[in-house]
Design a protein around this nucleic acid. Structure first.
Lengths: 212, 212
DNA sequence: CATTACAGACCAACCAGTCGGTCTCTAAAG
DNA sequence: CTTTAGAGACCGACTGGTTGGTCTGTAATG
């Protein structure tokens, strides 16, 4: 038998994703995890703490990945490319977490909310930062307001949780490629991501273009 | 005194936006609306019906606007432009509705959910349709998978409810302009939305570009 | 034998929804 | 003009079921 704590986390995650945090009772969680109230409250202080743990594992992971992507590269183009790819791929791993995260974040108790908010803001600031850098180096179009552009990108990616399923028509890598392409087309000053630009910007070729 | 029904709708909307559907009790709604349980249940069958009404007024409006935008124009470029603009502007009018809509749509009772889903799908299909048209006419890049592109656009716009506030740095019209610009840059085959293209595609000039 | 891990009966609070009743306004009857 | 009848709007005490959380007991562990 695996650790009970992990088992509770897994099953509750499934339940929350299907029915929402308020649509699932502690008794249901306990039944689905083959344990008892005692078992549950031995590992978690409250139902709210459970919600927090789910939020936290996801956001911590995203922030870590983004930081890594950000540090590896120095060109803003490679940076944003790499962050977006990492970000999109997270949805393959953590889709249930993210669904719960965005649908129930209102209901976090203040003490938990603050911690989550800090990490989320850190991530957002990082994206903003990269956009600003790109505008300064001249790689990104200066006429686009940085905040709006940043939120557009974040929204586009975040929304994936509403529709992505591993059984869908496209793999997560294909989706990531398309998103990178869309965003780069939108913000690069070099308007054509043409054959030459694959070299010049060291862009990876997305799956949906053919080498001629 | 305005109608009690409207008054309940307005106050409950505010409360739901702040605390979420499950964070607000009928008694709180009743107190904030200066009425009583009796008053409430005279106008609404249940708390769930209230949620449905909120969802429905918003989605009905969006669908109507988008249909109008879609019918006025015949060029796919103008169509998508017009739909996006209308869509973005909705957030100025209905932000509380939309917040509740996206955070609590899990909790709609099946009989209500179906109605909402139908309208939402109709809207989505319309966006997909326009993208397909644009690809057929050669205005939009054929290499972009239609579904992914469509969801990217919808996500980008929908996410606005998370951050937009009328008191913010940019007006809703400015945001709409930037979004249209970003999307057109991303999907138009004509890669440069340059001076000539303003004429050729009859694009309106967004607020952040200067005539030279 | 002591600490940790879990079981499950139990409880107090809460909350959507009900129900009998009041008040007001209109309109027909006398 | 007055009285009566009825309908719609609204009130608020009450309830029945539900839910998160507690507490005492017990088995395993080391």
């Amino acid at each position: 038998m695996a650790g009970l704590r992990e088992s509770i986390l897994r099953t509750s995650l499934e339940l929350f994703e299907q029915k929402g945090f308020h649509g699932v009772t502690v008794n249901q969680i306990v039944a689905a995890s083959n344990t008892s109230k005692g078992g549950f409250y031995h590992h978690f202080q409250s139902k709210d703490e459970l919600l927090f743990v789910i939020h936290d594992t996801f956001i911590t992971y995203v922030l870590k990945e983004a930081n890594a992507a950000n540090e590896i590269h120095k060109s803003p183009i490679k940076k944003i490319q790499s962050i977006i790819k990492a970000f999109v791929k997270v949805f393959d791993l953590y889709k249930p977490h993210i669904s719960v995260f965005y649908q129930e974040s209102n209901y976090l108790k203040p003490e938990y909310e603050e911690q989550i908010k800090r990490k989320r803001d850190a991530f957002k600031q990082m994206v903003f930062q990269v956009i600003e850098e790109g505008q300064e180096t001249g790689d990104f179009r200066k006429e686009l307001p940085m905040e709006i552009t940043g939120m557009a990108i974040l929204g586009m990616v975040n929304w994936i949780y509403k529709w992505y399923t591993p059984e869908g028509k496209y793999t997560i890598d294909e989706i990531a490629d398309v998103y990178v392409d869309i965003i780069l087309h939108a913000i690069l000053t070099t308007n054509v991501v043409s054959e030459e630009n694959f070299q010049s910007h060291m862009l990876e070729r997305p799956f949906f273009t053919e080498k001629k």
